[in-house]
């Protein structure tokens, strides 16, 4: 009994050290000062492509989060075994297999979500953030911190995506959509010019360039708040 207790406490103390100051930064930094999209400018292509509707952004964020955590965990566990010369290929194989598994599972258990996601599965494999974190972090760190790093970067990617898609959907379609709820148009029909009103949706918002402008505005706000981020 007593031995069990002592090992249990030592296990908790080990787990606590997982959330040390250094590890907390792994979670927090990618949300702000080292955000993968606004600071490192990675994963921009998917941020342009799938931020027309909020529900697509949610599904994409969740899938990327899953693939990142899985990829970082596996690569970090294998980090001492992977031969240096083929490490990029190994990382690609791991990411691609995870994405295929996600796709197959969605097709079997969530067919409706899978239909929405179909176009974007390929984009997850080519997402530079995932590859970047495997190469820059998971290859040199233990599984615990690697998973935290994956969660941090995944969420850092996710919040930008969600913010951009909310703006684009509200002003572009006058609606908000969530997975499982469909698109909810909240503006009264009478407001629109077609029905004799004064309002018109901004079609430019739906086109990809507007995503860049919105991301640009986020970068602007971020750098005006933290001057240290401005390059000389």
């Amino acid at each position: 009994m007593s031995t069990e207790n002592s090992t249990a406490t030592s296990a908790t103390s080990k787990r606590e050290s997982l959330f040390s100051k250094k590890n907390k930064r792994l979670l927090k930094d990618p949300l702000g000062d080292s955000n993968p999209i606004t600071i490192q400018v990675l994963g921009i292509c998917s941020a342009l492509a799938i931020t027309v509707q909020l529900q697509q952004a949610v599904i994409m964020s969740l899938s990327v989060l899953f693939v990142m955590i899985g990829g970082n965990l596996i690569v970090s566990m294998l980090r001492n075994l992977i031969p240096d010369r083929i490490r990029i290929i190994v990382q690609l194989v791991i990411i691609a297999s995870l994405v295929i598994i996600v796709d197959e599972v969605l097709k079997a258990y969530l067919p409706d979500v899978s239909e929405k996601l179909s176009v974007f599965v390929g984009l997850i494999i080519t997402n530079c953030i995932i590859m970047g974190r495997l190469e820059a972090f998971a290859l040199a760190n233990k599984p615990g911190p690697s998973v935290l790093d994956a969660i941090g970067n995944g969420l850092g990617y996710a919040w930008i995506l969600l913010a951009v898609s909310v703006v684009r959907e509200i002003f572009g379609s006058g609606a908000i959509s969530m997975p499982g709820m469909g698109q909810v148009k909240f503006l009264p029909e009478g407001w629109f010019i077609s029905a004799g009103g004064f309002y018109e949706n901004n079609n430019l918002m739906i086109l990809p360039p507007m995503a860049l402008v919105v991301v640009g505005v986020i970068i602007w706000i971020q750098r005006s708040r933290n001057k240290a981020l401005i390059e000389s």
Binding site: I82, P83, V90, V105, A108, Y109, P111
Partner: peptide, 25 residues
Amino acid sequence: IFSILMVVIVGVALAFTSLTLKPLQ
């Protein structure tokens, strides 16, 4: 050896996933 092992393991895992989920799909 590493790449051969990797390909075999990944191949088996993907084939297994695909076969088990096929009826549902």
